[in-house]
Every structure is written in structure tokens, then in C-alpha cells.
Amino acid sequence: MLKKKAMLIDLTLCVGCNACQTACKEANHMPADEEKALSTTSYTALDEYDGVFVRRMCQHCDDPTCASVCPVGAFTKMPEGPVVYDVEKCIGCRYCMQACPFQVPRYEWSSTYPRIQKCIMCHERVSKGLPTACSEACPTGATKFGDRDDLLKEAYERLAAEPDKYVQKIYGEKEVGGTSILYISAVPFENLGFHTTLQTTPMPQLTWNALSKIPGVVTVGGTLLFGIWWITNRRQEVKEYEQKLHDTNHSHNGKN
């Protein structure tokens, strides 16, 4: 069976060399200049909080919000883990940007034929069994590529080996139902710009709660409306018939 891939990012090991971004830009044929934030030309970027570097990128959720909200299904969660985007389908409604709990998708605002841009977890390389470009380039092992199950186990081992150093949490293990990017850190995640209040169930459940009621609304509503129409219509018919009867009786009586 195909194992789901993931990346483990150990923030204590990151030295901020930016090799991940350089490798990413090369792999995705983007301009080589260094960028400090996610953009349409950088799928990953480093944030700095008092000497701690945090890699920002698409989290590749197990049940991706973007894939669920897209009206034309332009996003797909690949069995290997990456969430990929098909520009040929996209109509540009930007619901993915509005909905993404990590605010990752970027838009080509200056283009007249814009695309969404975000990390695709090197899905072509990954599907060939290769690691992602960024993890391969990382000189300190801060970004490690592997099977999600193995990486989770390793993360727990690291937390257990140095309980005083690490915050006892793996960010991405449970957030929005689990993601393919896992973080461990020595600094509380909320101080590093992470949203720590995200729900642990997948986000698409929220809209599904409403969408799943549609068949019920249609059948019950349709029957009800038809029933009401039938009754009111019948009432009208009876009324008209009685009126007619009444009128003919009257004219009949009048003649006599």
C-alpha cells in the first residue's frame, strides 16, 4: 500500500540559511531572488521570531479545505500526500484563499489571466519516489522528508528525548484533521505566528453539515409545496364550481 508522505520541520534545527527557498525556486522554475514572504513566486518563505526561523508553506492537509470549497475541483489531494492545483479547471473565484485556515494560496493579482500559486510538495518528484527539493537541500536536517507515520514516530521520540527543550506538541498532527507538514519547536507555537486554536476535525465538515441537508430540503419542501398547491387549487375549483351552480340555480329560479 502507498504510504502517505510528509515533512517534519524541526524549528530548533533551522539556521535560516534559506536553502529551502532557493531549491524550491529552482525546482519550480521561479526567479531566484530571495523573498521574505509567501508569494506567487515563492512557495516557501522564512519568518523570523527572535532568532527562531519558521518555514511557511502549504500544510497539505489530509482533508484539504481548498479542495472541498473549490466549485470546479481544481485541487486534489494526491494519495502520496501533496495537494495539487489544476489551473486548467480554475475559474478564479478565490474561495480557496478565503477558506484556507492557514492563509496559504497566493494570487497573481497583476495578471489578466491569473493563477493560484502555492506549494505543491514537488508532487512529480514525490510520485517518482524522490524527496521534495527543499528537504533535499536542507543542510541541517531541519526539514526532513519521509512517510508520515514514521515522521510522527520520530517527532514523538525527539520530544521524549529532550522534554525540557521541546514544547510537547506536534503542530500538524491533529490540526484540521491532520496535515502533511509537521512542526516541532522549543518556543510555544502561538508565539511563532501559528494558529493554535484551529479545530481538530477537518474543516470541510462545517460546510458539509449544511450541504448534506439539501436532498431533505428538496424532497420535503417539494412535497410540501405541491401539497399546499393541490389543496389551495382544489379549494378554488370547488369554490368556482359552487358559484357556477349557485348562478345557474339563480337564473333558473329567476325564469320561474
Binding site: 466549485p71 475541483g73 475559474i91 478564479g92 474561495y95 489571466y113
Partner: peptide
Amino acid sequence: DLGRPLQIWHAIIMWNPRSVMFEV
């Protein structure tokens, strides 16, 4: 508002019933 307005018809043939926008 749509970034690719000429693709608006995609919703007719490219279905994603999990999407509220698709229903809309």
C-alpha cells in the same frame, strides 16, 4: 469578480458536490 470569467461554464461539467460554491 472571477479571475477567469471565461471559464465560468466549468461549473457545468467539472463537478465538486462538496463545495458550497458549486451549489451556488
